[in-house]
Amino acid sequence: MAAVTLVAVGCGGAAMATAMTGGDGGAPGARNLPAATGTVTRGDLIDTETVDGTLGYGDERALVGAASGTVTWIAGVGATVKRGGRLYDLNNEPVTLMYGDEPMYRTLSEGTSDGPDVKQLERNLDALGYGAGVTVDDHFTAATASAVEKWQQDRGLEQTGAVDGAQVIFAPGAVRITERKAELGGRTVAGKPVFEVTGTERQIRVDLDTDDQQLARKGAAVTVELPGGKTASGRITKVGTVAVTKKPGSSSSSTESTIEVDIALDDPKDAGRLDKAPVSVELQSERHENVLSVPVEALLALREGGYGVQVVRDGRVDVVPVRTGLYAQGRVEVGGPGLAPGVKVGVPGK
């Protein structure tokens, strides 16, 4: 008859057991019923790792003015400015935010050189409702000039049909003002920052150790624990490709390398009013789909090597050798004869 003696064997941090076969070759018997049982299940097994992150609005960047003059009005810290919104007044005329990656480096008017900055302006005019008759392309036409004049009229500007840096600043998207570099009544100069800004969407930044970069895959789902214990779901939106090396502390001469990983919450409302708040992010390190698994504590260390489980069926016990795979979520992936979803296996009693 098979004798099973429980011993403390470390594997995945769980209690293990040793199965020792008696003289009858390991025949099953009712007298060897385990103290408790677990169940073989089929499903996805996911191993995770938790890392630290910071909830905020992303990196700060300078918003640079493209004209010189006196600041006669300026948006306050914390303000959000979207396309068509007023950033500040220069010499008592509004400077408007438009979207685009091309900086305003010249006056745009009919007859000027064609280019992507013209297309960028036309795209904004169209988005703001001034695109009738305008073809969004690299050409500043008479139709473009007419659209500019209508926009200028609505903004209280002189209707010249031409646009320059005293009227427009381009940025990739809406901005949230975190610092004013120019002050009311002060003078600002072309090429100098007027504001420090961030984006307006909440995101989580993780400085991930380069040794763990395999954990971060763009588009992968994550779970975020917010201050107070609330959890929220999110997805990785960007994985940095350049490692940043820094010293972890003044008392140590060693260095650490990290990559930046950005995460967006599935529902931005989950962030509430939090800014620059520490969070914990659960990343998936490995996922095995549609596999059989048992509780880790069901594993027995066999005398002849490898592992087995006690299959409990009809009041009797068979020690079945198993192949093990991924350890995760308190369970272990297994394969072996007679294993199927719903089969009971022995586990140590509480």
Rank of each mutant, 00 (worst) to 15 (best):
L274N: 01
V312L: 10
G13R: 11
A15E: 14
R42E: 11
V343I: 10
G23S: 15
S68H: 00
N92T: 11
M20H: 14
T39H: 09
F170Q: 04
A19H: 11
V320H: 06
M20K: 15
P227A: 06
V95G: 00
L97W: 08
M104D: 07
R205C: 11
A17C: 13
A127R: 02
A66Y: 00
A15S: 14
Y307V: 06
R235Q: 13
Q152A: 06
M104K: 03
A19P: 00
T231M: 05
V206R: 07
D89V: 05
A328R: 06
D207H: 13
I46Y: 09
K181S: 10
T135R: 04
A271I: 01
G43M: 05
R180K: 12
V279P: 01
T198D: 07
S252T: 14
K238E: 14
T5I: 15
A75H: 00
T18H: 14
Y57N: 08
Q152P: 03
Q284G: 14
G78E: 02
N91P: 02
R176Y: 04
D59S: 14
P227G: 00
I204P: 01
L215H: 12
V136C: 05
T237F: 07
N32Y: 15
V317A: 07
V95H: 05
E256Q: 15
T141S: 10
F170L: 09
T160N: 01
V239L: 09
Y57I: 01
R61I: 07
V224P: 04
V281A: 01
L184K: 06
A19D: 11
R61H: 02
V168H: 08
R235G: 12
G346V: 06
P268L: 08
V197I: 11
E93I: 08
I46C: 11
L299Y: 05
P94M: 03
T237W: 02
N91C: 08
N290M: 11
K246L: 11
A328G: 09
T324E: 00
E49G: 12
P172M: 03
A298V: 02
T200K: 00
L45W: 03
K119H: 09
R83L: 05
P28R: 15
A264N: 06
E149A: 13
V347H: 02
W151I: 01
E256W: 11
G26R: 07
G272A: 03
L125T: 06
S146I: 09
R316N: 15
T72D: 08
V279F: 04
S68R: 02
S254T: 14
R61F: 07
G78Y: 02
G23C: 13
G85S: 06
G56I: 05
G78W: 03
S251P: 00
E179M: 07
D101P: 09
V332P: 07
A145F: 03
L55I: 08
T54F: 06
G338M: 01
G115A: 05
K269I: 06
D89T: 03
V261N: 00
T223D: 10
V239D: 04
L87Q: 04
A8T: 15
L6D: 13
G315R: 04
D137I: 05
G13S: 13
D138E: 13
G43H: 06
